[in-house]
Simulated scan of single mutants.
Amino acid sequence: MKRFSRTVDFEVFRPDLDQALACSDGSKGGRPLFDPVLMFKILVIQTLNNLSDERTEYLTNDRLSFMRFLGLGLSGRIPDAKTVWLFRERLTQAGAIGGLFNRFDATLRNAGYLPMSGQILDATLVAAPKQRNTNAEKTDLRVGRIPQDWQDKPAKLSHKDRHARWTLKFTKAKPQDDGTMPFSDLAIPFFGYKSHISIDRKFRFIRKWKTTDAAAGDGARLREGLLDKTNTASTVWADTAYRSKANEDFMDKEGFVSKVHRKKPHLKPMPCHIQRSNARKSVIRSRVEHVFADQKSQMGLFIRTVGITRATMKIGRANIVYNMRRFLLLERISITA
């Protein structure tokens, strides 16, 4: 936490936080609010350590390192779990996470970390608590309709995630001893959301991102603002999910150079020259997998909230914190070099 305090200037987030919270000037009285930058630091601690609101309150009171990071003394007033939840909820409803992400991205650019070496696109599935719905309820959800039974029970509706979706997660399973490939090993049912990102090739910072349900296709997101047009190098790396005529035409029209993997011909062996080309592309494209591994292993990325608005807030916080950790690493390397 010391390195975070020394390296990251959290005051740059204050204008966006003040605008999103729209706090009064205190002229009407009432209990003084906690400093919004302090509250945002608490969200950073929460994301870094994969903490619940209650656990965050307890550890903030217990750990001196957290208190020093927040600038609090032993006798200082510490936000409770409900205050943390309310602060995060207000930022979520205000849609502030995009502005906060862009604010820190501007900080990275001012520090000299400019995207100038091409970009890599990919997506990963983010799990959410499974919903047990009937077939009729699933049919209603697909067409964007709230099931009648849920409308009559507001408490039940508030606990139902109407935006997360089921999909099949395909794995590279190895054959069993008898040579068979069980379906359960090849296609695993998955429920939740999907995090789409674009990172720059050199520094591996996340530059663009988007959150969708798990069933959304990867390729279509390329044409929905996922490409970073400020990257001075026009090369784009991605896996076969992004290979389509529509995407190739779009990138050609926008001036990008496609390094997207080519697909294997249907019912035919992969030509050797395409196989070698894909292997060369994989050396670069595989760097994006390290981002997802960091978020899921170090931060324990998992959606415990209801709805895509809160899921976007969760994934956006993970993206900001990843960029912060990456910034700390690169700054430490530059000092020791």
Rank of each mutant, 00 (worst) to 15 (best):
R142T: 10
K172E: 15
E11R: 08
I120E: 11
E254V: 03
E224N: 13
I197R: 04
P182A: 12
W237D: 01
K194T: 09
R142H: 08
D218E: 15
A337M: 08
N49V: 00
I78C: 00
F327K: 04
R201I: 07
Q151M: 13
M251K: 06
L91W: 05
D185M: 12
V236W: 05
E54L: 14
T83I: 07
R310K: 14
R165A: 14
K194Q: 02
N323H: 07
K160G: 05
T171L: 12
D16S: 12
P79G: 12
D35C: 11
R207W: 04
P182G: 14
R88Q: 13
P182S: 05
S195P: 00
R77L: 00
A337Q: 01
A187C: 04
E137G: 06
E289A: 08
M1L: 12
L43G: 06
I315Y: 02
F10K: 04
P271V: 07
F191D: 11
K160A: 15
Q275K: 13
D177H: 11
G316I: 07
R204Y: 00
G225T: 10
K268Y: 05
Q151H: 06
G255L: 03
H290N: 13
T336H: 06
P175Q: 09
L168H: 11
G112I: 04
T139H: 04
S198N: 15
G217H: 14
P115E: 09
M116L: 10
E137A: 15
P15K: 13
M270E: 10
I97E: 02
Q151Y: 01
W150F: 12
G98Y: 10
Y193W: 07
L114M: 13
D62T: 11
A96R: 07
D218R: 10
D80R: 02
E224F: 03
N231Q: 10
W237I: 08
H290Y: 09
